[in-house]
Design a binder for these strands. Structure first.
Length: 631
RNA sequence: GGCGGUGUAGCUCAGUGGUAGAGCACGCGGCUCAUAACCGCGGGGUCAAGGGUUCGAUACCCUUCGCCGCCA
């Protein structure tokens, strides 16, 4: 039996909601998965969530939530996000699954028995916040070396266990020197340099907490989360549970990850663990780059984090395309605009440019003009592709595409597929079926459209991994039944159509995006127009009383002059008495959509300063008549 | 500090020992099947700077400067 092609993504830390970075990795895996399936091979694509870190429990407790149900909820968030992006995985592992803990304990025990784990003392520094240990030489003035942390460290000396990573330098080097063990090649060099610099044994236990996997044979300790996390790739493949599955999967064919966890973990600790266990090593580790936003690192503090699902919403909003195609557009943009492996930049401007140029003008418009002409000139009947000079060029591009895909050069594979569309557009211009129609030359029209449609058909097949829904739609509109395989992408290889199908003009799949200004408004800055939409007015509070059954809420009536009186509810009772408020002039948001608060209608909002432990009402510096505009 | 990479048209990037290319953007023209689309043409670059090798370098070597990454 042929080995099942096994693809993994890292498991994602549940403390964070799915962001564009994790989406990027998972999309890459989905793209490869679809490509391999297109080659007719069986694929197993696994992803999941990393839930055993102590911080996860802390985060849950901070929200007053039980860690288990917190993880449950977050794991669902991830699944929802992936399906919202059109990703279809074959397995989803959560490291809090019971079976995973069994696998981890079993393997740790095995490593101990084989002598790769030994007991020892850990002397050094520990950062409570980062949950990270540091060696003496890494630390200055007792502060955390992580530039974003820099908190005081604890000096620790504790008993625990080490994994003999240092024993694997030689075998690791021979693995890492293989030509395609690590990609991109520049990262392979980084990894090699790292290992050549010498490996230290790694401390693989932590003090036991009420969250995490206990260390076998020592109740006071638990397994370091990275050891636990890496083992997920074995668990999800059926290790110790489904031997048949496991033998048909192992080792992974491609393991995807961000560059940050390639060198130390996936290209070093992970293969060393496998070597120690006597298990085959992964065929390929791929460390892709990061996405920045307008050249800046994404971070919560900068407020520029892109959430993949909201990016899909934006695409829908600005183009009006269907949701399934918006999902396609996002993944297409991500892999079209940045060579896979390198760092990339995300911006809605670039997304729009890419969407319009490639998807609307090129692909979508070509499909549209071809279906229209087939409908009008040929009564909806798709002509077969004639043999001509295009077949050879199409074959060359197909070969380039395959080579690119096999090397995970998604960027250039997309380029090859798009070249076919260019050829089709040029061909139409040269042969001008609309002129042939006026001349009544139906045979020539059949040849012309037959050629262009075949180019589009092949291109749509090649684009299936990148545009799963749109490709499928295009092929269906042309009368084929997707999904088609790579072998169908040969010139004239697949002319079979759904019986008696009539091609008709349909609504554009990718309507153009026109609204540049609105898009920029989605980013950090808002335009003057956006600000002007807020109707700020001077208002005079004319009544104020506590909302029944609450301690903090006041219900007030505000006089807005020409706009009349408005009711509003505000949580300012701890800071002002009704007497202080009645008669006061305030700044009021007059065109806020009405909301119901505690069953009471609130028809606007009073502006107030959110000061530490205080709330301060904003008032005009001098008296102004109620209803005056504020700008 | 060590190692690796990179600096080419407004933007994103290809590229080769023989005096530069693509896509996007921009301008003009054509066409009308099409989503102001598509097709054609065009402007625009001392290929970071300096030196060397060579008949000849953007490409090879050295130095400097800028940026990035990995490690320490």
């Amino acid at each position: 039996m042929e080995k099942i092609f096994y693809i993994t993504t890292p498991i994602y830390y549940v403390n964070d909601v799915p962001h564009i970075g994790s989406a990027y990795t998972t999309l890459a895996a989905d793209i490869l998965s679809r490509y391999v399936k297109m080659k007719g091979r069986e694929v197993f694509f696994a992803t999941g969530t990393d839930e055993n870190a102590p911080k996860v429990a802390e985060a849950a407790k901070a929200r007053g939530e039980d860690p288990a149900s917190f993880c449950e909820r977050m794991a669902e968030e991830f699944k929802k996000a992936w399906s919202g992006l059109g990703i279809s995985f074959d397995a989803f592992i959560r490291t809090t699954e019971k079976h995973h803990a069994e696998v981890v304990k079993y393997l740790v025990q095995e490593l101990k028995e084989k002598g790769w784990i030994y007991e020892g003392y850990y002397n050094g520094w520990y950062c409570i916040y980062d949950e990270t240990y540091f060696r003496e030489e890494e630390v200055e003035r007792g502060l955390c070396p992580n530039p974003e942390c820099q908190r005081p460290l604890q000096q620790v000396s504790e008993r625990g266990y080490y994994f003999k990573l240092s024993a694997f330098e030689e075998p690791l080097l021979s693995f890492l020197r293989e030509s395609n063990s690590v990609l991109p090649d520049f990262r392979q060099r980084e990894v090699l340099n790292f290992v050549l610099g010498g490996l230290r044994d790694i401390y693989i236990t932590r003090k036991k907490k009420d969250w995490g996997i206990p260390f076998p044979g020592d109740e006071k300790l638990q397994v370091y989360v990275w050891v636990d996390a890496l083992i997920n790739y074995l668990t999800v493949a059926g290790f110790l549970q489904d031997e048949e599955l496991f033998t048909s999967l192992w080792p992974p064919d491609v393991q995807f990850m961000g560059k940050d966890i390639l060198v130390r973990f996936h290209a070093t600790l992970w293969p060393a663990m496998l070597l120690a266990l006597g298990l085959p090593l992964p065929n390929l580790l791929f460390g892709h780059g990061f996405l920045t936003v307008k050249g800046e690192k994404m971070s919560k503090s900068k407020g520029n984090v892109i959430h993949p699902l909201s990016a899909v919403e934006e695409i829908i909003r600005f183009s009006g395309c269907e949701r399934a195609f918006a999902k396609d557009a996002l993944r297409f943009y991500l892999f079209r605009s940045t060579p896979f492996g390198a760092d990339g930049d995300f911006s809605y401007e670039a997304l729009r440019a890419c969407y319009n140029a490639d998807l609307a003008n090129n692909l979508g418009n070509l499909e549209n003009r071809l279906t229209t002409m087939t409908d009008r000139y040929l009564n909806g009947e798709v002509p077969p592709p004639p043999e001509n000079g295009y077949s050879q060029r199409a074959e060359e591009l197909l070969a380039n595409y395959q080579q690119a895909m096999d090397n995970l050069a998604f960027h250039s594979a997309i380029g090859d597929a798009l070249s076919l569309l260019d050829m089709a557009n040029k061909h139409l211009d040269k042969t001008a079926p609309w002129r042939l129609f006026k001349e009544g030359n139906i045979q020539a029209i059949r040849r012309s459209l037959g050629t262009a449609i075949e180019l589009l058909r092949i291109s749509a097949i090649l684009l299936q991994p990148f545009l799963p829904s749109a490709s499928s739609e295009i092929l269906s509109r042309l009368g084929f039944s997707p999904p088609l395989l790579l072998k169908d992408a040969k010139w004239g290889a697949f002319t079979r159509q759904v019986e008696g199908v009539k091609i008709k003009k349909m609504a554009p799949i990718f309507p153009r995006m026109e609204e540049v200004i609105k898009i920029s408004a989605q980013e950090k800055e808002i335009s003057m127009d956006d600000f002007a939409r807020v109707d700020l007015r001077v208002g005079k509070i004319i009544s104020c009383k506590v909302v029944e059954g609450t301690e903090k809420l006041y219900q007030m009536e505000v006089d807005l002059g020409e706009l009349g009186k408005r009711r509003t509810v505000a949580a300012i009772a701890p800071y002002y008495t009704p007497g202080e408020l009645i008669g006061k002039s305030v700044i009021f948001v007059a065109n806020l959509a009405p909301a119901k608060i505690r069953g009471l209608i609130s028809e606007g909002m009073i502006l107030a300063v959110d000061a530490p432990n205080n709330v301060i009402i904003v008032t005009p510096e001098k008296e102004a008549p109620p209803g005056s505009k504020v700008r």
